[in-house]
Design a protein around this nucleic acid. Structure first.
Length: 483
RNA sequence: GUGCUUGUAGCUCAAUGGUUAGAGCGCCUGACUGUGACUCAGGAGGUUGUGGGUUCGAGACCCAUCAGGCACCCCA
């Protein structure tokens, strides 16, 4: 006997009892989203690896299943948004905006498996392409809540953050684009490891060049470029073989060697960011604190006004502010977010849903016009796990038991007739005795047993037994219509 | 990626470092060759996750590896 083959780590077999429940939850979510005007779309599971390289964020990029086949670099999609917008750019730019799309299907991430965390899972989500803030943001959150309400998940928490607020703050301090980026996506890390750790990280990635590689002091841009070119030439490094021209290469090198931002600016930014990240809690409490912090920084924030507008609209959508929480330290590993970001948790710690606004992504993927967009996705398995298995649907199930091989063809006909009348009907394939079939039917919860033997076959009848009542009668084939 | 924990029959679990690894449930067959939940009899099913090591002797101890779970990290 050969050894059994296990499922691949992180992959799961979903048995019928669970699948019934999951499929039902999926259908409800899809229906609710469709009722909000979102049209179903389906897209490939396999995409070009390149689609995920830039905008995904280092954390998630490392979790993408990648492979090469036939000379192409490919990836299993780790999320849907990039695919949806790729498809939008490719084939839907002629559609009237806003465009509301719903998707539903498997995604793959190389994560440590745990309960509710699998390497293949199902995202059900929407994208609202061409929907500007704040109304589209509020709609996305409201629709996400509506779906959870419909499947009967109660007591969830909606957590709101806003990456635009952080961006504004950093920009107002005059920091370089790259520094802004690193800082903006380090909020979660800062919360976990503290300011000092982040400060160290910043100087590692952006700060001083390695000892011994500093530029000679007192050079202006032109002199520095000349000096660097001379150095490279002296080292016999040929710049003409690359795809960039030598000037470009030198300019980039220079930028790396020059110290990016003055330390006091960075410290100021870190301080403000740290305090911003500490601001968490109900909107009533947190929003005034945010306002105070912004005033202190002397910042007139459009993002703050946007967040306030979104909160007001959520109330209009009927979402109780009691279940809403502000968390400006909210990170989210997807670097394409530009504005609102949100996550929904069940009463426990499980994240059910996540999304946000990504106004630059259409352009980044080659769209003709800058197009605002917002979206979110549920983790179907996580949502389904919270939903009590619904009562089995009202199905009438029958087992047809032929007495001997001679009766099998007739049993098949009986089963056909039963199915025509809406029964779920099976015919015994194991050649079991009536007693065993009856025992089997009872154990499975089958409602009816049809016994067909020599007598029934010649008469065109069947013995029809209702298991629950033990009531049994002989009926003709035509009388099946009345069962 | 980090730390911890658990892997023995299809399932739930036994077995002080010591004979041929057991039980319950489930499964199959029959008693009952055309009538169910009980009963009785019989049967199938194991390289103790895998591979090394220690030992006279390993299911047990050690190492590695694979898989599940938990807490981080991150996410859905």
């Amino acid at each position: 006997m050969s050894s059994p083959i296990e499922a691949v780590r992180g992959m799961r077999d979903v048995l019928p009892s669970e699948q019934r429940n999951t499929a039902q939850v999926r259908a409800i979510l899809e229906r609710v989203l469709a009722q909000h005007g979102y049209a179903p779309i389906d897209l490939p599971i396999v995409e070009q690896r390149e689609l995920y390289l830039r905008k995904l964020g280092e954390e998630l990029v490392g979790k993408v299943y990648e492979f090469s086949f036939g000379g192409r670099d490919l990836a299993l999609r780790p999320e849907w948004t990039a695919s949806v917008l790729r498809a939008y750019v490719a084939t839907m730019q002629d559609q009237p905006l806003p465009l509301r799309l719903i998707y539903s299907g498997p995604v793959f991430r190389y994560e440590r498996p745990q309960r509710g965390t699998y390497r293949q899972f199902t995202q059900v989500g929407v994208e609202l392409v061409g929907g500007p803030s704040p109304r589209a943001d509020a709609e996305a959150v409201a629709v996400a809540c509506a779906g959870l309400d419909a499947v009967g998940v109660g007591g969830y928490r909606v957590v709101l953050g806003h990456i635009g607020l952080i961006r504004e703050l950093l920009a107002s301090l005059g920091l370089e684009e790259r520094t802004q980026g690193v800082l903006a996506w380090s909020m979660e890390r800062m919360r976990a490891e503290g300011v000092a750790a982040l400060r160290e990280r910043i100087s590692e990635t952006m700060g001083t060049p390695p000892p011994g590689l500093e530029l000679p002091p007192g050079l202006d841009e032109g002199q520095a470029a000349g000096w660097l070119l001379g150095m490279l030439d002296a080292m016999r490094i040929d710049l003409s073989t690359g795809t960039r021209d030598p000037q470009d290469v030198v300019a980039r090198l220079l930028r790396k060697l020059r110290r990016g931002d003055p330390q006091p600016q960075i410290d100021r930014a870190l301080d403000l960011l740290y305090r911003l990240g500490q601001l968490r809690g109900s909107p009533d409490v947190a929003m005034p604190q945010v306002a105070a912090l912004l005033a202190e920084a002397g910042l007139e924030s459009a993002a703050y006004a946007e967040l306030r507008a979104i909160l007001a609209l959520l109330a209009d959508h009927g979402i109780d502010h009691g279940r809403v929480e502000i968390d400006l330290g909210l990170g989210r590993g997807l670097h394409y977010y530009t504005g609102l970001i949100f996550e929904i948790y069940d009463g426990d710690q499980m994240q059910l849903c996540g999304g946000g606004r990504y106004d630059d992504l259409v352009s980044a993927l080659g769209g003709r016009q800058p197009t605002p967009a917002v979206g979110f996705a549920y983790g179907l398995e996580r949502v389904a796990a919270l939903v009590a298995a619904a009562a089995p649907p009202d199905e009438r199930v029958a087992l047809v038991a032929p007495i001997s091989d001679d009766d099998y063809a007739y049993a098949l006909e009986v089963a056909r007739r039963l199915r025509e009348r809406g029964f779920i009907a099976t015919v015994d394939v194991r050649g079991r005795s009536v007693a065993t079939n009856l025992r089997d039917a009872a154990r499975r919860g089958v409602g009816y047993l049809a016994v067909v033997g020599d007598a029934e076959r010649t008469q065109g009848t069947l013995v029809w037994r209702t298991l629950a009542s033990r009531d049994e009668r002989r009926v003709t084939l035509d009388a099946i219509d009345t069962l």
